[in-house]
Design a protein around this nucleic acid. Structure first.
Length: 361
DNA sequence: TAAGCGTGGAC
DNA sequence: TGTCCAAGCTT
């Protein structure tokens, strides 16, 4: 492509070797790097989608401990999978992993395929993840373009294409391909760019160009325009929703309902929630025989595309239409998203306090 | 193509 | 504080 034309074959090789040497000397010791397999690489890459390394580490360790092989995942219960993903976000990732595992059992003898083309056709695996698995675990000479790579290469090339656009990502897969070393080193090269993006060529604030092994070939650095890259079109404002959360409790148990199979927090467990704001009078009118109605601290949860502004009431009442669960059952088997966590904690505290006062009565 | 889909860290 | 945005994919 034209953006790489000004880089001679010699410069490309120098940049390659500088990046590989830097990576081999400075990369972090991460759990999925200690032992490499297609399964481990796949699990880590799915978890790392739009998610920070520090957040992923404990989830990765637990997931591999509970489901050490792809065959284990293929037969795992949805409830277990949601529990293993609880708090990590983007829950369709783990449902797609199970679908993918099932396909691999049927079609590939219980193993992930190793080629980029086959990986791309599997549920939950797009161009980035396929490139990462194929190059890291399969030694295939293919690019893996994520947000780090877009940022690092936009700076190296001083390229002002809008990285939000799909066509730009396609272009970058071609730009990066021209820089890839031989197949055996492609995985390290891809990881090197990502590691550089995470540790040196950072997204927030000024990048640490003094520590950068490829600063000598970076066009943005030469121009002093590092922070103008990458170019990213503005995202749409979030909409705001008002809700009232009803936490029904009865005899030390808490009512939870499984959310619909489609949409936000699909399939997870949550509380009854109105689609508009209710005040105490409306809750009292709905539960006239409640033994107790306690207003809880309000809470705002910010998702990527919507904000939930929630006020909440704890209602002590046995509602025949609700299903109540013990704390043990909830903690072992039911995944509650972070959005509801503060209300769950409040209910737990209330139950514990009530138990104490009941005991002394 | 653009919107839907979570969460938390950094500034 | 609010804003940005991180190892993206699906529809």
């Amino acid at each position: 492509m034209e953006e790489t034309n000004a880089f001679s074959e010699t410069v490309i090789q120098q940049l390659q070797q500088a990046l590989l040497a830097w990576y081999r000397a400075h990369h972090r010791d991460l759990p999925w790097r200690r032992e490499v397999s297609a399964y481990r690489t796949w699990v880590s890459e799915i978890m790392l989608q739009q998610t920070r390394v520090e957040a992923v580490i404990p989830y990765f360790e637990r997931f591999l401990h509970v489901l050490p092989t792809l065959a284990d995942l293929a037969v795992a219960d949805d409830a277990l999978l949601h529990k293993l993903w609880e708090g990590l976000g983007y829950y369709s990732r783990v449902r797609n992993m199970k679908k993918c595992a099932e396909v691999c059992v049927e079609r590939y003898g219980g193993r992930l395929p190793s080629s980029y083309e086959e990986l791309c056709r599997l549920p939950g695996i797009g161009p980035y993840t396929a490139g990462a698995i194929a190059s890291i675990a399969g030694q295939e000479r293919v690019a893996a373009v994520d947000g780090n790579v877009l940022r690092v290469f936009s700076r190296i090339l001083a390229n002002r294409e809008d990285i939000v656009k799909e066509v730009t990502k396609k272009h970058y897969r071609q730009y990066v391909s021209a820089f890839l070393p031989e197949a055996a080193d492609a995985g390290d090269f891809n990881q090197a760019i990502m590691e550089l993006g995470a540790m040196v060529c950072s997204p927030n604030g000024a990048p640490s160009c003094a520590q950068c092994p490829v600063a000598a070939w970076c066009r943005a650095h030469a121009q002093g325009t590092e922070q103008e890259f990458p170019v990213r079109s503005a995202k749409k404002a979030r909409r705001i929703e008002e809700h009232t959360v009803l936490v029904l409790v009865d005899q030390g148990r808490i009512a939870l309902q499984q959310r619909p199979a489609k949409g936000l927090l699909a399939g997870l467990h949550g509380f009854a929630m109105s689609d508009e704001r209710w005040e105490r009078q409306q809750v009292e009118a709905r539960y006239p025989h409640a033994r107790n109605i306690v207003e809880l601290h309000p809470h705002t949860h910010v998702f990527s595309h919507v904000e939930w502004h929630m006020n909440a009431f704890l209602v002590e009442e046995r509602d025949p239409l609700a299903s109540y669960h013990s704390l043990e059952e909830i903690e072992e088997n039911m995944a509650i998203p972070t959005a509801f966590r503060p209300f769950y904690e409040a209910a737990r505290t209330w139950i514990r306090m009530k138990g104490a006062t009941d005991d002394t009565r």
